[in-house]
Design a binder for these strands. Sequence first.
RNA 1: GGAGAGGUGGCCGAGUGGUUGAAGGCGCUCGCCUCGAAAGCGAGUUUGCGGUGACCCCGUAACGUGGGUUCGAAUCCCACCCUCUCCGCCA
Length: 425
Amino acid sequence: MHDIKRLRQHADEVKAAIARKGFDADVNSALALDERWRDLTKQGDELKAELNPASKAIGIAKKAGNDAQAEMDKARGIREQAAELDDQKRDLKAELETILLSWPAEPDSIVPDGLTEKENVVVREWSPGEDEPDFELKDHLALAEELGILDMPRGAKVAGGGWPLYVGTGARLERSLINYMLDIQTGEHSYKELAVPFAVNRESVLGTGQLPKLEEDMYLVDKDDLFLIPTSEVPITNLHRGEIVNGDDLPLQYTAYSACFRREAGAYGADTRGLLRVHQFNKVELVQIVKPDTSDTTHEEILSHATTILERLNLRYRILDLCCGELSFAAARCFDIEVWAPGTKSWLEVSSVSNFRDFQARRLNLRFRGEAKKPELPHTLNGSGLATSRLMVALMETYQTPEGRIRIPADLKSYMGGLDQISGA
RNA sequence: GGAGAGGUGGCCGAGUGGUUGAAGGCGCUCGCCUCGAAAGCGAGUUUGCGGUGACCCCGUAACGUGGGUUCGAAUCCCACCCUCUCCGCCA
């Protein structure tokens, strides 16, 4: 959410910054509502300032046994006026909130211009330095179905299209990846592991900024008004919602595995073969809550925490500096990590590492007590570290053998019970 | 799902209509004392909003949340949420 005080002073800047994301913010309506609200607040407070001492005087008079009917009638009149103003104020405030909550975060000034993926900037590419094999590479779906480790038709039978069903060593590989990534992030990068709810309430999704924009992209359990989490960013970042945390405890670093659920509404025509775009996938998420002056450094750190995994698995990847239009609603800056899938012959997004500045913190009413007299807003950041389904695609396609088997990367062998390669389910 | 108890500041806990943003204690901060510390003594110690983008100050709001009654609500009424205990059901 945007700072109303900043908006009052720098409305043009705010409007211009949001416009870089392709969003036309009706700044004037917001300011008009705010001005009326402030005006009514002033009037209301003045009335109450009159009312409160009058009520006290009535109390004293009645205690002394004096009649105070005239004063009571007068006080009632004032109270009715004040109540009238309160009602108007509430409506104005609600209207203003609705508007402000619908505005995306301002992108950082260094974020590249542009509204489509064409304007994303490749900032770095990494490769293990091995040539691609010279035999005909299969894509992950062909490989996995022939091995029997992925059964999309039966997934469709029990749930629907785009609900993957892993079988045997495929399921084991999925679980291994999750454990492997969690072990690195908790053991080497000092994140505290959480096991979070996979469903969250409306307040939580509003806090991290999936609502109001992405309501149609999430699964809603209507009966309980709960959303299946699209990412564990939501439960993790909401942990300290409404709290004032001790500044000495920052940075707070959390990681959690979770299943992630996405309706992928409107994704028709996009890459949907096999595991490329599914309704449920697994992800290890990294979240940090930090002091504002350190968030740029933290952003780079989280990026390296995510890429570590790919480098140890010897998977080729590249990093994109997302342009304004490609940034998510709440993000001020974001690096995407894309892994190379040699069979599919495309770059697959396996992580988004975002800095939200104080945008989420303000929505969450999340503050910390630091040197300043008043509580301050921290910056929140997160990154996937990583998402398994597309990682699985790259892994299977990269490690395939001419016989259609899948070698197990050295780091994963112990997690796979010493298995060298997958030759069947 | 049923029955009961309960939600008050960083924490414990008092407060069942009146001058209570809230007793008391703990904790914390500062000062005195001390070679230093402890103990003791004294003072301070919530947040939002508006005036006014800072300080001070002033006003206002907040005792789970939202409504209501009243001149006046932490206190009375209604609804909801959450926690705990017991029962039922179930992994």
